[in-house]
Amino acid sequence: MATIQTADKAGTWVGIGRETLVKWAPLLVLIVLCGFFAAIEPRFLSTRNFARILIAASPALMVATGVTFVIIMGSIDLSMEGTVSVCAVSFAFCFLWLGGTLASWAWLALPFAMLVGAALGFVNGLIHVKLKIPSFMASLAMGFVGTGLAMVMTGGDRIRIEDELFRSLLTERVLGFPLMVYVAGVFLLIAWFIQTRTTLGRNFYAVGGGEDLAIASGLNVSRVRVLGYTVAGVFFAVGALLAVGRIGIAETATGNDFMFLSVTAVVVGGTALWGGIGGVWNTLVGVLIVFVIGNGMVVIGLPGYVQDGVLGILVILAVILSTDRKSISFVK
């Protein structure tokens, strides 16, 4: 009897705050995780460790932010590994060709890389929309093209970027955190601005929430889709720049591992794969959850072979906790 009563109580409590609870669930998961790791190993909470987490997370955050827009539309973009590699390599070539230091005209390599990202995203979107190929497949194939292109450009070599001014992204610290963390923060704000304060951003939700309705309301859905992929491409490029800034090397492998990582982070943050729900703040929380888990397991000293499995279990738990079970009837 007692158990039934508690269940009822919990039921009402959840009933009142259900929406709020689901909305904040990813953040709660993040806080609980931090608390858990901190309880086992207090050093987890040090500024140095947080800086480490944020340095590792910054490039992935940018990539995940880019793909968030596409996922909000109910599509998916799996081209990030290729796009990141091409952007990183294009940046490196352009940067070295123009002088090899940010103090010269070589700073133009930064916007150039973002243009390359935009162009790749644009082509990706066009292939998806004009050839009517499902985005999963179109973007996956574009990812192959990207990785291949980076391979052709470099011939398999690594390109070192040793300019101190560019590397200050990592080496220069303000309040204990390197510059790249702030750069990622600025671009996150830009993404938030696009999402909430621009027509394009609202249109992403319109397309994801119900494409039939969006078309019926006179929205040019094809255009919104192509633009969505283009914006995503720009964010992939920013991710590439931060990745190069972090390790000082541009190569074909720069884009490796971003694909599953970023999509997982987006979903863990509470953005639904079927579109219309979520946003860039969810993605921030999702990326942090994934990287806090990764870092925390190292800090508390779990053996390497356990870490993958624990990550898997925690990712599943995080998604379960942040899913509103009452509002969906099935998932694919």
């Binding site: 794969l273 499995g309 898997g312 990712v315 599943i316 998604v319 899913t323 099935f330």
Partner: peptide
Amino acid sequence: TRQFVPSFVATLAMGFIALSGARF
């Protein structure tokens, strides 16, 4: 199906668990 985790994430995560098993 029962926990409403999209198969993209659920299977990816199960893959990590299998990887752990393989490494161990």
